[in-house]
Simulated assay, not measured.
Amino acid sequence: MRIGTWNLENLFRPGTDAGAPTDRTAYDAKLAALAATITALQPHVLAVQEVGDPAALDDLAALLPGTWHTATAPPDERHIRCGVLSRLRILETEQFSAFPAGLGPVQVNDAGKVLAAIGRPGLRVRVPWSTRLDAAGRGRLLDVVSVHLKSKLLSFPGGRFAPRDEDERARYAVYALHRRAAEAAGVRAFTTTLLANQGDRHRVLVAGDLNDEAAAATTQILLGPPGSEIGTDGFDRPDRGDLQRLWSLAELIPEKERYSRVYRTRHELIDHVMVSRALLDDVRTVSAGGPAPSIDDDPRDRVDEPGSDHRPVVASFAV
């Protein structure tokens, strides 16, 4: 079983949004590049981000060999959303956006605007894990959660991607960081409820563009109780926290390919796959591959470019 995540970078049909390809030729080239990469990866389920138009995701699915199913969450204010592409039947879908109880709204700009929920709602899909039955005669299932946290690339009033001065840059960096942390807490709260203290039996995989690296504080929020991360002394010591933990698979990606985006020539792993205890022993390989152009702070420079500015991250599991 191969399951992964990929930010598809403004997947809009032409002419439907400011970030969309300007014509059909550019759109077809983008779809062809995305489809070629997905076909080579052969995932069974792919969490996707920056889907601007559900119809565009269907266009992409139509270019892939075999039968594919799609699902999407509601869009954010940029008109992009989380979604899932799946060769497996989608048995259930659920959207979520709530911050955890007790966490108040966060300020997001100088005008005092606040955000009281995850800006880009997350999406959970349930798919068959295998056709084999468990001891109770039930089919085995997997929940895949597709998420996309607040971007590290800052935007400023008036549609600017450059600050007027360093004070403005610092303020908006804080707004973005606070929002990303609150959104991570919202995803963590949803996952905790989903696991229901049964992480040793419930197969849950959280995947998406977390917009920060594995060691970042916002990313660490998603893991749950600390102390058992891959590569630490506590990894092979089971405890009660295992029933709620997620394990980041970042450390299992070969070091030379451990990046999913190139920002000003610096390699960053900001797209992640995390699994519950029930999946951990089944992990076989984790990889990040494909081209990744070096980007800067203005996403408008990428309009009409084929493919994506992210690399997909895919994990394979024994079933």
Rank of each mutant, 00 (worst) to 15 (best):
Q244M: 10
Y175C: 08
P14Q: 07
A162V: 14
I253E: 07
K30S: 00
S287R: 12
R78I: 02
L64M: 08
V174L: 15
A189V: 04
R164N: 12
Q49P: 06
A315G: 05
D296T: 14
A318K: 10
D23A: 11
S86N: 10
F190P: 05
D297L: 11
L252M: 15
A33S: 14
R240A: 15
R284F: 03
D17Q: 14
L64F: 07
A98Q: 13
R169C: 03
A214P: 09
A33M: 06
Q42P: 06
L149W: 05
N197D: 15
W6C: 04
T265P: 02
A18F: 12
D309K: 05
E50K: 01
K256H: 13
A135M: 05
L103C: 11
L11W: 08
T265E: 13
P74G: 05
V314A: 05
D239Q: 09
T93Q: 15
T232D: 03
V206K: 12
G122C: 11
V283K: 04
G241W: 02
I230A: 11
R126K: 10
D233Q: 14
P254N: 02
A56I: 04
Q107I: 13
S130Q: 08
R140L: 11
A33V: 08
A216N: 15
D143P: 04
N7Q: 02
P291F: 01
V273M: 09
R169K: 14
D209K: 03
G241T: 10
